[in-house]
Nucleic acid binder design. Structure first.
Lengths: 235, 235
DNA sequence: CGGCGTGTTGATTATGGTCAAGTTCTGTGG
DNA sequence: CCACAGAACTTGACCATAATCAACACGCCG
């Protein structure tokens, strides 16, 4: 693997302001970049992280998207999160030194890899990186806890609406259209992410369509009234 | 506040093997202990952390118990977690430098406080502490994500059973009876933690009682058949 | 063209929320 | 010690939501 060519350094990456280095000093960014390996292209369905594998690196999506999924006690798959470019996957691996969920590409995907060794060493010397990782973990925790309660308090409409609005804002942050969305994940993935069934996702989308809040054509979704979606009653 | 008397150091605390120092070297434990402040007794209902407050410290429950709770978009309170002795509260504050949830004592409670400043400095020099904090964050994340899905996949019986079994094992870890439990939280707290209503919690407990799985008398609960609770079908 | 995965729609049902009426518990003041 | 008030908890009746089961449409690839 040939990597770390100057022109690929974190500082000159289009994602700099969205990715891990977002809050790092130029110097810290340079050092971080020195430790980053550039992964090869993955095809849709390829596995980035295998559940049970030793936590030997963190991964950042560079292009495309991925899902993190785990297995429930009854064997059903559930989707913990979707990852867009600049988002970090594998953080849960810090829990016990092993990854507890599979990370799978949803479409052709590229990524960066930060091996644990250098990461640990940088954590000792780069306070900014330390803070950033703690921040990311705290934020994910925050998010998961909020969603946990909402999942059992907010109805299907509210959850799906929130999902669309959230996705939209994350796309916008990446200078993609916040209203014309091509979903890289299946209805099944969405359902398993929101704790619903495919049927309910389908029906709820249909309801949004009838209300003229969205335009749906297979995996293309256009948000016609994002405000309506964002302000759905909470039961 | 007079603190850090030798006999109160982390190394000689009864919680050492359960608390933050659990995986630290004696030397690291000593240094950590030097930064820990001993908080005064709180009465039931007193607030340990105020939502919105700057994250200026981490807190560890020493005696008694507490709940972390946030506010949902509709103003309803929800309970993120219950904290037993040796458990850390305030980790979510790492997300943005401010605490996003209230931490409230459920009964007379004592605690330790680790100010952010010393904590940051120790993070730079103590790799064990760094790893431990990352591990804690990862574990909480893990837990929250698992519960998030279960909350919308597992029925009320399963959720309540899981809650009791989990609580039981945490009590056992602290050398308290895993079967004779005095709940420090109200039914309302339990309901708001599991994403249920008080009525459902009450009814479900009654069902467990009829099945002779538990004995319930107000806040005293005896687990008669923990195995039955632990092996509840997942829908 | 057929077959399969993916998605949609309909009918039925079970789970848990809501509303309402008690009951028990706890602390307070006479 | 008892009376009482208010909170916490329990139980019942009813109903809304989403899961389940089943059939069908659509797109994609061989």
């Amino acid at each position: 693997m040939s990597q770390n060519k100057p022109q690929l350094s974190c500082g000159s990456c289009v994602l700099t302001r969205i990715c891990l280095p977002a809050n790092l000093s130029p110097e810290e960014t340079r050092i971080l970049g020195g430790a980053v390996e550039r992964g090869r292209e993955l095809r849709a369905g390829a596995r980035l992280i295998r559940a049970g594998a030793r936590t030997d690196a963190l991964y950042v999506v560079r292009g495309g998207s991925a899902k993190s999924c785990g297995l429930m006690s009854n064997g059903e798959e559930y989707v913990r999160a979707f990852h867009l470019p600049g988002e970090v996957a594998g953080l849960e691996g810090f829990a016990c030194g092993r990854h507890t969920c599979e990370v799978v590409a949803l479409e052709p995907m590229s990524y960066c890899r930060i091996p644990s060794g250098p990461l640990e060493r940088m954590m000792a010397t780069l306070p900014g990186l330390r803070r950033e990782l703690m921040r990311l973990l705290g934020q994910s925790l925050e998010e998961a806890q909020r969603m946990r309660i909402e999942s059992s308090t907010i109805d299907a409409r509210g959850r799906l609406a929130r999902f669309l609005v959230d996705l939209s804002s994350r796309l916008e942050l990446r200078h993609l259209s916040p209203t014309h969305i091509r979903l890289s994940m299946s209805r099944r993935d969405i359902a398993h992410h929101l704790g619903l069934t495919v049927e309910t996702v389908s029906r709820t989308l249909a309801a949004f369509r009838r209300a003229s809040w969205v335009e749906v054509r297979a995996r293309y979704i256009e948000l016609l009234q994002p405000a309506a979606l964002a302000s759905l009653p909470v039961r």
